[in-house]
Simulated assay, not measured.
Amino acid sequence: MAIPGHAQIDQLMVVEVEISSLSTADSPRTSGADPEHVEALAAVQAPLPPITVHRSTMRIIDGLHRLRAAELRGHSKIAVRFFDGDEADAFVLAVESNITHGLPLTTADRKRAAGRIIASHPQWSDRMIASVTGIAPGTVAEIRGRTPGGPVAEVSRIGQDGRVRPVNGAEGRRRASELIAANPGLSLRQVARAASISPETVRDVRNRMLRGEDPLPQPRRKQANGERSVVPRSNFGPVAVPDRTSVQDRAAVVERLKADPALRFSDTGRTLLRLLTIHTISMEELDKLIEKVPPHCGGIVSHLASECAGTWAEFALRVQRKVAETA
């Protein structure tokens, strides 16, 4: 994960700065420097690493204990690397730096820092902020929930991978269903980018639409006996989709299609019939195929099978739409 500010530190340029010109204000370490840690650093014979300083304010981002150790040694100057970002990103960098090395921040300091980062970077996901502050994503979510406007202020958030995703997954699914209905030819990735959801979620939405289901997962409720039951939803889409058939029924349907002159006497039709015939194999036959897949090929075979399934789902949806338009 790239934390804002990392690229704005010139790692090659180290300068000597007067200690008296530096500020220790606005540190995430509310209790200040730990005297024992300062003494331990002062006793080290080797030169200490440069500290990180916010250029525009001269505030110390990372290296408070090294600064105090230099003072204890009687030094008037200290080696510095400068950070050129804004103050909000400087604070983020200070927090991230102080949980990855040196004397770690206390849990209380991390929680306070999380609250401040939620306010300054509300677009960041709970996991993103958790990775910076060193606390659990659930704890970040609790802190966000106590922040005025925190849970509802943003429509989407940036995750650790840099991708933007909706806070409300249901909204992304609705958007994806609208895009698929309007343009069935869009690829999974195209819809995913437009709806800010993952390609796999788009695949699930499309498959639900093919089955005539609502694109949103069906909510469940507990029954008196403790089991969970599905709350019925209305069918989605204008085209009726028949119930899933057995392998034998599918094979029989394909046999009837083979008798259709429109398919039998054209190259494209015969190609379609061959493909449909291949996909009438039973689960027992599938199990045999699965057993024969070499372990070292499993990943790529699984990926290709998933891609083929997506292609067929897209094919089915576009044929459905064509039928609906010509009906």
Rank of each mutant, 00 (worst) to 15 (best):
Q45F: 04
E39D: 10
S31C: 05
A114W: 01
G134C: 06
R73Y: 05
E87P: 02
V155D: 13
S125E: 08
G150M: 05
F82G: 02
G150Q: 04
V132K: 03
A113G: 04
D89M: 06
P28Y: 06
T52W: 05
I158D: 03
M128Q: 09
D34Y: 05
A88C: 07
P148G: 08
T106Y: 01
V80C: 07
A113L: 03
S76D: 15
Q45E: 15
V140W: 01
I135Q: 05
D34I: 12
H37N: 12
G159M: 11
F82P: 00
K111I: 13
L64D: 04
A141W: 01
W124V: 05
A114P: 01
A136N: 10
A90Q: 00
M58A: 13
R112A: 15
P35Q: 11
M58W: 01
T30P: 00
T24E: 15
A69D: 05
K77W: 03
Q45T: 14
G74D: 01
T52L: 15
H121E: 09
S120F: 00
I78S: 06
H101D: 11
P137Y: 08
T107S: 11
G145A: 10
F83R: 02
I143L: 15
D109E: 14
I158P: 00
V95A: 02
T24S: 15
T107Y: 01
D34W: 04
R29M: 07
R127G: 15
A90M: 04
E71V: 10
T133V: 15
A25F: 06
V44M: 13
D62C: 05
A119R: 12
R112I: 11
T139K: 09
G63N: 04
H121D: 05
Q123K: 09
V53I: 06
A114D: 03
F82K: 03
T52E: 08
S27Y: 04
V155Y: 07
L93S: 04
L48M: 09
V38C: 10
L72E: 14
T106N: 08
S31K: 09
P137L: 11
G74S: 01
R29G: 04
G102L: 07
V44K: 10
R29L: 07
E96P: 00
V92P: 00
I60N: 02
A88R: 09
H37V: 13
S125P: 03
M58N: 13
G74F: 00
L67D: 02
R66G: 05
W124Y: 14
V140Q: 02
V38Q: 11
L41N: 06
T57F: 01
K77C: 10
I135F: 08
G85R: 01
P122H: 02
I78A: 07
L105I: 06
H65T: 12
V140G: 02
A119T: 12
G32D: 07
A130Q: 11
G63I: 03
S23D: 12
S125V: 11
A130K: 08
R157M: 12
L72R: 15
R144V: 07
P137I: 12
A46D: 13
G63P: 01
